[in-house]
Structures are given as C-alpha cells and as structure tokens.
Amino acid sequence: MATTASRDAYLRIGLEILASDGYGALKQSEVCRRMGVTTGSFYHFFRNWADYTSALPDYWFTTHTQSHLGPLLAEPDADVALDALISYGLMLPHGAEGAIRSWSSADPAVRRVVEVADQLRYDVVHNIVGRVLDPEAGARYAHWALLIIIGYEQTTLSVDLDTLRWTAAQWVESISRERASVSTERTAAGVPTERTAAG
C-alpha cells in the first residue's frame, strides 16, 4: 500500500530504513519502493538525493529531540519533567539513531547535527536533575544518561528495550537515593527541607 507522498512522509520512511537496515540501506530506490511511488514523485519534494540526505538528520533532530525536549525545559515541576524524560528516552527510535551516529562518523554535516542533539539532551538532563538535586549532580547524571543512550544505540551486544528500561530504572533509583541522603543530611543539620519549609 502506497504512502501518501509528502516531504515528511519521505523523511519518516528514511528513518524507518535507518532503523531496520542501517545507513548502508538508505538509497533513493529503497525510499521510493517503501513509499510505493516512482522516483519522479521524489523530485517534487527534493532537488536531488543530496538534498534529501541533508534534510534527514535535521528532520530527526527536530522531530525526535527538539520538539520533545523543549516542553520538558518549560515544565515547572522537576519530578514531572523527570518522569517525562525517562519516557522520552525509552521511546526514541534507537535503531535509527544508531545508524545516524554511524553515518556521522563519515559525514561532518551529520556529525554537527548529532553534536547539537547530544548537547541539548545533556542540557535538559542537567537542568532537570539539577533542580531535583543540585547542578553538580545534574552534570554527573547528564553524562551518565548520554552514556546509557549512546552505549545502547552503538553496542554490538544483544540488548532490548527491557534492558534499557531496567538501566533507566537504576539511573532513577540512584537519583532517589542521593536525594534521600541529602534530605537526611539536611534534617540532621537542622536545615529545613523544601517540604518542611513550605509546610
């Protein structure tokens, strides 16, 4: 069944190809085959193949990083933002991301997009965990979060979403333990916690 042709549809198909078969399978003929259209349709939306491959990493960044993380920065409740952050990390198109990261090793333009995405993700985690704990802890947990995601996407070992979900749970549990420890230390020192200060 043919997919309704649009610029976004072509780019979504590109991410699907990256996710299922890797960067080596990303060919104009395969994109058009999966779209169920002729190559003539392709040129209604893209000047040439280079135009398409230039647009695809930007599309990934806009739709799978920027559009999701912007609202998290605006969320006033850090705990709500943290829960949403975990959901976001689990729903990423990890197969496509792994392929884009491999692609970036050979294409400086793609690498720049990946670097911007990683920096934004780092900044958002730093911001959220920094509010739950403190900025120094936010930096540590932001690095850890990226190591989890990038490692998951690049490993050649057999892993699955349940493994990632378990790993994310350990990350969150570590934050919770550190938070409880800080609260206990403040209570012992007679420093009001947010809860007691507000109540």
Rank of each mutant, 00 (worst) to 15 (best):
G22W: 07
R195G: 11
A106G: 08
R179M: 09
S174I: 07
E153T: 04
A106D: 14
E97F: 07
A198V: 13
S174Y: 05
R33L: 01
L157I: 15
I17N: 03
A9H: 01
R131Q: 07
L26S: 02
I148W: 00
S41W: 05
R165T: 14
F61Q: 15
A84F: 04
P57R: 12
L56H: 01
G89K: 06
I128V: 15
G70R: 15
D8Y: 03
E153Y: 02
A189G: 03
Y88C: 15
V31C: 10
A99W: 00
A197P: 15
A145T: 07
D8M: 06
G199H: 08
I86G: 14
G89N: 03
D77A: 15
R140E: 10
I86F: 06
G14L: 00
Q154S: 14
A106F: 07
A5S: 07
V132T: 10
R177A: 02
A55Y: 01
I128R: 10
D118N: 14
H94Y: 05
D51G: 01
P192V: 09
R34T: 03
D118L: 05
G199Y: 04
S20N: 12
Y52E: 12
L92K: 09
W166T: 15
E136L: 09
W144G: 11
I149Q: 10
E194N: 12
L120Y: 07
P57M: 02
T39E: 08
D79R: 04
R33D: 12
E75S: 09
